Computed example of a mutant assay.
Amino acid sequence: MLTTHRKKAILAALKRDGQVIAKALSESFGVSEDTIRRDLRELASDGLLQRVHGGALPSSPAAADFVQRQQISTVAKSAIARKAAELILPGQVVILDGGTTSVQLAKQLPSTLQATVVTHSPSIAVELVGHPHIEVVLIGGRLFKHSVVTVGAVAIEAIGHIRADVYFMGVTGVHPTAGLSTGDLEEAYIKRALAARAAEVVVLASAEKINSASAYVIAEVTAASTIVVERETPEALTAPLAALGITILRT
């Protein structure tokens, strides 16, 4: 089998099964595991999959910068944001992550809601400037322009002084075994620190993020108590997450 045909077959198996194992592929194609690992490396460099120990998982398509992501799955993000906004109670201290879905969540907060929003996203802070009853706490640090959020030691230090009721986390990958992940190392550290300061973690995940993985692990998937997904997200994708005790909230 030609290399190009083998790579197409690998991607087809990945789409069908949700993961591929290098040993099984080598036996199926009658080639060495070294050959399969080379194929996986090349496919990963093209952004077509995420390599993991022993094989590969689907790569998250949510790796574009903030401006580009604003044009992706806009209807789904709005629906997820509306459902997530229903979880916020008056008087709570709420952490809103950076990201386009979180900006939509800020837009959905009712004008009568009295709460405190902590965020490391200038975009969310600006969105809430006109809200009459929301107190905004903006975490400082170095601006990571790709996602328009603050990162670094200053942000980590500030996060350590917060005690929140709920953290609405944005991710690029949600996988039952590979966990919650994102495409930048510093963002992963920030998200992990924020999760540690909240009594509850709610993950906002459009369908393309479920059962996919990015390079940097935030936490085990069970760090999330609830995952908000689109109504049409296939049950086959969410069932393994629900089996772990995570509440799946559909829009």
Rank of each mutant, 00 (worst) to 15 (best):
L2D: 13
T4V: 09
T4N: 07
K7T: 05
K8R: 15
K15I: 03
R16C: 14
R16K: 15
Q19D: 12
K23D: 15
A24V: 15
V31Y: 05
S32K: 07
T35C: 06
R37A: 05
R37G: 02
L40Y: 03
L40P: 04
E42C: 01
A44F: 04
S45F: 00
D46S: 12
G54P: 05
A62H: 10
A63G: 15
A63P: 00
A64C: 09
D65W: 11
V67W: 10
Q70P: 00
I72D: 05
K77R: 08
K77G: 05
I80Y: 02
R82M: 14
K83E: 14
A84V: 08
G99M: 09
T100V: 12
Q104Y: 10
L105H: 07
L105K: 06
A106I: 00
A106E: 00
K107Y: 03
P110I: 11
P110A: 11
S111V: 09
S111P: 02
S111L: 14
T112G: 08
Q114S: 14
A115S: 12
A115D: 06
T116R: 09
V117L: 01
T119F: 11
P122A: 13
P132C: 03
H133D: 06
H133M: 02
V136N: 02
V137L: 09
I139W: 01
G140A: 13
L143W: 06
F144K: 15
V148P: 02
V148E: 13
T150Y: 09
V151W: 04
G152P: 11
I156Q: 11
E157D: 11
I159T: 01
G160A: 15
G160I: 01
G160S: 15
I162T: 03
I162L: 14
R163F: 00
Y167D: 06
F168V: 02
G170K: 04
G170H: 07
T172C: 13
H175M: 12
P176L: 06
T177L: 14
T177S: 15
A178W: 04
G179I: 11
L180H: 07
L180T: 06
S181L: 12
D184I: 08
A188E: 01
A188G: 12
Y189T: 07
Y189I: 06
L194C: 05
R197H: 08
V201G: 04
V203L: 09
S206H: 11
E208H: 11
N211T: 10
S212M: 04
S212L: 00
A215S: 12
A215N: 02
Y216L: 00
Y216V: 00
Y216N: 13
I218G: 04
A219D: 14
V221N: 03
I227G: 04
I227D: 03
V228Y: 01
R231P: 00
E232D: 09
P234M: 01
E235H: 00
P240C: 13
I246S: 06
T247G: 05
I248V: 10
L249D: 07
T251R: 03
